[in-house]
Design a binder for these strands. Structure first.
Lengths: 109, 109
DNA sequence: CCGTATCCTTTCTGATACTG
DNA sequence: CAGTATCAGAAAGGATACGG
């Protein structure tokens, strides 16, 4: 993507996580397994995009898709170890936003 | 933007930081003040977009633009307190990428 | 419920060219 | 050096409709 040379791994991490919705999806999954429609309504993402993101994250080994063979079938998404390891990142982000971000959106950039 | 209800501040933070290049720009600025062209060549961003991002970040109070009245004039960009406070976020991200991200790009998503 | 396929609109980006 | 303006192509997003 952007092949600079500062730090390839870091840049790659950014390209994974720094996509729209991804942060919210992981944030949501940190609270536990979720079904597709829960995530969808939980963060207000469209189905098409959520599907896309979940597949990306699955491919990256951050999210795991589990099929419970009940009737009707139940499918849940959860974080892998790699995904859970992102918790500190999100936590720090959360701290930062609590401290520095104002809610009054004078002008949303 | 995405008006869900999980955590407005957090979502806002994401919308600020989760834009392409922003992470890298801040990462770069954490090493100290930089001039426009340094950032530009440092991370391989086009001037047009860098200019845009810097203005965004300035408006958010994350980056400060300082004009040194020399001849020729010198302009440097640096992080504000709010910007520096992002260091832990980036640091955790860095840790995570060191631990979990592989460089072999089987297929860059 | 859990998606995928299509289509259409909006946004983003980079290249280029041009000021102070 | 430090940008801004324009422009055209690429990418991303949402809505809808449909299938397993």
């Amino acid at each position: 993507m952007a092949d600079t040379n500062i730090c390839p791994k870091f840049e790659r991490a950014l390209s994974i996580i720094n996509k729209r919705w991804t942060g919210l999806i992981i944030f949501q999954l940190l609270t536990g397994s979720q079904r597709f429609c829960n995530i969808e309504s939980g963060i207000g993402i469209s189905g098409r995009v959520l599907s896309e993101r979940l597949k990306d994250l699955e491919k990256e080994g951050i999210v795991k898709r589990t099929v419970y063979d009940e009737t009707p079938v139940r499918i849940e998404y959860s974080l892998t170890e790699k995904g859970k390891a992102l918790e500190p990142v999100l936590r720090e982000m959360r701290n930062w936003s609590d401290q520095w971000v104002t809610t009054d959106k004078h002008e949303v950039m």
